[in-house]
Amino acid sequence: MPEAVMDAAITLTDLKKSFDGGKDFVLKGIDLSIPRGKITVIIGFSGTGKSVLLKHILGLIQPTSGSIKVLGQELSRMSDKDLIRFRTNLGVLFQYAALFDDMSAIENVCFPLREHRRSLPSKEVLEIAERKLIASGLESKHFHKLPSEMSGGMRKRVGLARALALDPEILLYDEPTTGLDPILTEMVDNLIEQTHQMHEGSTSVVVSHDLFAAFRIAHHIVMLDKGKVLLQGTQDVFLNSNHELVQRFLDKGLRRK
């Protein structure tokens, strides 16, 4: 039995999703195990259902059929209230960071702590937030800046610090390098790697179409195509694959590099 199946943080079984009452399926029966404690990168061309899959893992979308188990719990059977509570186990870095634009960097990081660690004194909340921001690589002189006053890279760092605020077991990254220049892309990749190393035992799931990020940081790669898992495994599995689409994806990625 493969290691991923034996100790999976997230297990999807025959996951199907249709937005038009069953005429057309975006996800057409996904069977997938995301290994615990590893970095998994989900890649694929645009429109293959990567973001929809991520929203299912977060419980933001209910599947048409199939099962989603996150940390051993079936999401589709959870009540809204339980789901909201359960999501504190997950941290998400959104594509454009999704920072609250009326709050400064440090207030953004304090927010989840104030919501879920109500017994913590205000001073301690601030100390934790500062630690998370420093760990994410943000200099203290930027702590009190609003998102509109920060660069894309700084916003990503704050978004990551906010995602880490509650020390989640699973960290999810939605297209973290989209729209960034090559230097920032490398910075974000390093950040993902460093964060994973710092939070021992945590599981990271990166949804991306950036093949090089996948090859640089991933322990496990999943390729989606037309709403199905085309191939999953280590980098070697991909490099040795004879599948035409995988070869095309690799060729295009390598040529771009």
Binding site: L58, L60, I84, R85, F86, R87, T88, L90, V92, F94, Q95, Y96, A98, L99, F100, D101, F111, P112, E115, H116, R162
Partner: peptide
């Protein structure tokens, strides 16, 4: 509306805030 289209509402939801 701005919060919705910039994913700030999604961020609240995944943070475990209704």
């Amino acid at each position: 509306g701005t919060m919705r289209v910039t994913e700030q509402i999604d961020a609240l939801e995944v943070m475990g805030v209704n």
